[in-house]
Simulated assay, not measured.
Amino acid sequence: MTQELSRILYVEDDPDIQAIAMMVLETINGFTVEACNCGGDALEKAVAFKPDLVLLDVMMPGMDGPETLKGLRSFPELATTPVVFMTAKVQPQEVEGYLKLGAVGVIAKPFDPMTLAQELRDIWSKQ
């Protein structure tokens, strides 16, 4: 992409993981991040926030990551917004499944806070 990555919609139900990622992405790397605790929250906030990229947990209670992705894609404004899944489920067939759902990348949990922003920039640059 020619535009620089700046706005990230981040969907994560674990408050500790969310806090670490928010600190790294916002405070250290200067991204504008809208945090959501669940898929429903993401569907409510996404269109108004206008994210450049969605960072989406796979395993969440209620609406999981794949269901949230499907919901986000139902909004014309978000139909082509890149989505990156973040998950501990990173067996090759699982990653392939996420990519088939429309994700542009997968980041393994536990993630390295020191490399998270660069991983997202690298995925972004390949769009």
Rank of each mutant, 00 (worst) to 15 (best):
L55K: 03
C36Q: 09
L5P: 00
K50H: 06
G30D: 00
I20H: 06
L9A: 06
C38G: 15
I17R: 10
D16Q: 12
A48Q: 06
M63N: 10
E94Q: 14
V54Y: 08
N29F: 01
A35L: 08
V24G: 05
T2S: 13
Q3H: 09
K89Q: 13
V58E: 11
G102C: 09
K100A: 15
T2Q: 12
N37H: 13
L9Y: 01
L99D: 12
Q127P: 03
V90R: 08
L53G: 03
L53N: 04
D14W: 11
F31K: 01
F31Q: 01
M1C: 10
Q118R: 06
V24I: 12
T115K: 12
A79R: 08
D16I: 13
A46H: 06
V95P: 08
T87R: 01
L5M: 02
Q118I: 01
M114I: 12
Y98D: 04
A46I: 00
G102P: 09
M1K: 09
G40V: 09
V84F: 01
C36F: 05
Y98K: 06
M23C: 10
P110F: 00
K100E: 13
E77K: 03
R121L: 06
V47R: 09
I28D: 14
E119H: 08
T81H: 05
G105E: 05
P66V: 00
G97M: 06
A117F: 00
K89T: 09
K70R: 15
M1I: 14
V47N: 02
A117K: 01
G30P: 00
Q91E: 15
Q93W: 13
P51A: 02
V24L: 03
D41N: 13
P66D: 09
S6M: 09
S74R: 14
